[in-house]
């Protein structure tokens, strides 16, 4: 049957119209039309030997087992049927509905109370955490400001120190005269010991 299915599928499917992909499956060792082997033709398989005591014991056990299973199954089926019993009495329906509602409502209330306590705790923690974070950031900001101020003051002091040597409009003539009077010659060579050699022609 399986082989037949595969054949019919492979023949009808558009992808494999040729029989190249056809693979015939066989459940038995032999094809159906091959007869029983000559050597096995008159073979009689040996029957299992069961001791009489064992057989009696097995019979007893099986009888017990079947009885027990029958009662257990019946019990389970009855319980199942009872659990699915449908009532048409409106009072009963209302009662079942109320009971179910009360049960669900109780569970819901429990969950709500639990979530409420969790929420209160969460918000308390969150507020505390936020305050702490704000305090920490404020402290950090103050420290940064202090550092910046110190840096600025240091730069200002440095510049003040330097400003004594600046050339301004007041002393520019003096500076020019000084520069003209003391020309600096950078045209020199240096040896490995650092000695300078000016205008030395070889």
């Amino acid at each position: 049957m399986l082989a037949l299915n595969i054949i019919s599928k492979s023949l009808t499917s558009p992808a494999t119209k040729s029989a190249v992909n056809l693979q015939i499956l066989r459940w038995r060792r032999k094809p159906r039309w091959v007869p029983v082997a000559k050597s096995k033709q008159f073979r009689i398989p040996s029957r299992p030997v069961i001791i009489e005591d064992e057989q009696i014991e097995l019979k007893r056990l099986f009888n017990n087992y079947r009885t027990q299973m029958k009662s257990i199954k019946r019990h389970i089926v009855e319980r199942f049927v009872a659990s699915r019993a449908i009532t048409t009495d409106p009072k009963d329906i209302q009662r079942i509905f109320d009971e179910d509602f009360a049960r669900c409502n109780k569970i819901n209330d429990e969950w709500n109370a639990d979530i409420k306590s969790q929420r209160i705790k969460y918000f308390e923690n969150a507020l505390e955490e936020n305050v702490n974070v704000a305090k920490a950031s404020l402290q950090k900001r103050k420290e940064l400001d202090q550092i910046k101020l110190e840096e600025a003051e240091r730069i200002v002091a440095e510049q003040k120190e330097l400003s004594k040597t600046f050339i301004t409009a007041d002393n520019i003539d003096e500076a020019i005269e000084h520069a003209l009077a003391n020309p600096v010659d950078y045209n020199f060579a240096v040896d490995l010991d650092g000695n300078k050699f000016y205008h030395k022609k070889t």
Binding site: K73, I76, V77, R79, F80, V81, S83
Partner: peptide
């Protein structure tokens, strides 16, 4: 399992 046994 009990459910399906109950179904027979």
């Amino acid at each position: 399992i009990i459910y399906w046994m109950g179904c027979g």
